[in-house]
Design a protein around this nucleic acid. Structure first.
Lengths: 339, 339
DNA sequence: TTTAGCACTCATCACCGAGGAGTGCTAACA
DNA sequence: TGTTAGCACTCCTCGGTGATGAGTGCTAAA
């Protein structure tokens, strides 16, 4: 285990490196942080810290740089948690809770805000429709052979599908079917949809019911995929570790692989609270010099989505973790309270 | 005016520069294009072309590079138009026309495709709602005090708004109002909405009508702003002119200023057909080494939107123009035929 | 255990010279 | 008169070199 002074030195080095992105030497620490010992002593400590794997040296005459293990220790036990000022805190919460928006827009807004706060790339995985509850379903016959299906799901999601059919229906048929469907589906979770729950409709409405139900099922299935929203990708160009265009391009391209992202995000945060994945802890090659800070968000006590931030391993963990925590909380509050 | 050989030389230089992004010298032209004259002669021609402003020289011992004037001449009279093979042509058209998508998705798809074809950033301005025609309007009372407004606009746009009201309405009131509104609005252009057209509703439904109409108007106005979709921003990192991160960042940031983009795009293409704005012809500083290729798209004979591509002035104008033309045509066809 | 001192390493930067691509000019040629 | 070979000249690029300085590890003394 590390003694108190080693911890102080390690913290000082990481703080400094996070701020400046420059390898930090013993003199810098001795001057800037008042540890009451000389640079030579710090040098010795640094040598020990390197030996035990908390620090690395880009080359022999450069200062030290934190290793993944160093960051991990820093995040777990060393760093001072960042506290937003009450003013900021309120303002951020307000920004999410304030506007009366659809779920999709709220999620966009959360992503935007998170990117702004952290100056990094933010990601938000929208609730998969599986977990949402039907509030209302309405079929509307448009003048031609198409039927508009409008679904209102809790919380605040409205989905539309235009279904085209060869067969013509009278408005009355549509209306009856609409009420029947609405009756059946109100309060049902999307995931529980299936042939069984439709069987009564098919029974009551015969062939027409069957056709419509099939069309419905087919139409709905297209909407099922989980969606990831990214925001603030430009921000990574401000980070010195991405001054090399090829690196930046690699990350950008990784960000476009939405399915990959989904994996990364969802595997990252199984447990509750704010999770951190540092550098090589990440399974994907491209992300080996990136860290990921994630949290889940809730409706009531059900996890419905994940959000997170991607940045260089040299990120301001305290601040990013605070931001991710706050935004996920605010989003959970919004979704839970919105009836 | 330029004589035939000067034109050939200029075309050869621009073709070569577009391909390689390297200043091109007289020897290269003499070797690669069989003009039947020596490099010395070409050197003389190049000196003339520089004098008259079609070419520029980065420094005295480098080859020549096209000037904005050079590109302009190339685009207007020199270049060979690019023709997609019938197979490509069909495939592209199919990709847009094929899927039965909502307008919003079709526009996304068009942007994605355009970016893919040109390996540049593509932009699509969605039709402003002003120009769309009401096809159907439906109010649905949800169980609490909120009312769901669903508007179906031609072509293929479905908009929802949740309106919250203190006042409670019975489902019957809502239904009556819904039919009345639908009756009134069917076939009306969005732009023609206003107090006058609502006055009858207010008259027929008294205070409740008034309240609802106000809520409606207020709700709708939020949806009015024009929307720009961008796609393929990553592609510009492949262009050698953006190997410098700061440049790339500047362009990225310009792309995020959606209102700016709207100005640029809409001022660019007033007239019909494919328009090209080259380098300094563009009014915005950031875009001085970019060119913009735009076209409008239609519903019937009404211009409803603009789409375009932004890339370095050294872009493959022939190919980009062909792509922009084809995509805008396909989109127009889609919107016009979709009833 | 701490620290001052010192030799050593090595990245960075400015500078230099060779190499080479490309030009403009001149003079000869068709 | 237009074309071309030849040549001097420019200046970018690139590899090498040496100075500088930040930072280290080691040693010996406090």
């Amino acid at each position: 285990m590390l003694d108190e002074r080693k911890r102080q030195v390690l913290r000082a080095i990481i703080d400094s490196y996070i701020e400046t992105a420059e390898p930090v030497g013993s003199r810098t620490i001795a001057r800037r942080h008042d540890l009451g010992v000389s640079s030579a002593t710090i040098r010795n400590e640094m040598a020990d810290l390197e030996e035990t794997g908390y620090l690395e040296q880009p080359h022999v005459s450069a200062g030290r740089v934190p290793s993944d293990k160093g960051y991990r220790f820093y995040v777990d036990t060393l760093m001072e948690p960042h506290a937003f000022s009450p003013l900021e805190y309120l303002r951020i919460q307000q920004e999410i809770l304030g506007a009366q928006l659809s779920l999709e827009r709220s999620i966009h807004e959360a992503a935007r805000l998170l990117a702004l706060l952290t100056q990094s790339v933010s990601l938000v995985v929208a609730p998969s429709m599986d977990q949402l509850v039907f509030k209302h379903l309405q079929l509307v016959a448009l003048e031609d052979t198409s039927i508009l299906v409008t679904m209102v799901l809790h919380p605040g999601i409205v989905k539309n599908r235009l279904i085209r059919t060869e067969q013509e229906f009278t408005p009355e048929q549509i209306n009856e079917l609409s009420s029947a469907l609405n009756q059946k589906l109100k309060g049902v979770t999307y995931r529980d949809l299936g042939p069984t729950i439709f069987s009564e409709i098919i029974r009551d409405f015969g062939e027409i019911g069957q056709v419509l139900v099939e069309l419905l099922l087919q139409g709905l299935s297209e909407e099922k995929g989980e969606q990831v929203y990214a925001s603030g990708a430009v921000n990574i160009l401000n980070q010195p570790e991405f001054k090399d265009v090829d690196r930046a391009k690699a990350l950008f391209e990784a960000l476009e692989q939405k399915e990959h992202l989904l994996n990364v995000l969802s595997s990252a945060s199984r447990s509750s609270g704010v999770q951190v994945v540092i550098g090589h802890e990440n399974l994907h090659d491209v992300m080996h010099d990136c860290s990921l800070v994630t949290a889940t968000y809730y409706i009531g006590s059900d996890v419905v989505g994940t959000l997170g931030v991607i940045g260089p391993t040299r990120m301001d963990y305290a601040k990013v973790m605070a931001a991710v925590g706050l935004v996920s909380n605010s989003l959970s509050t919004l979704l839970t309270e919105q009836k």
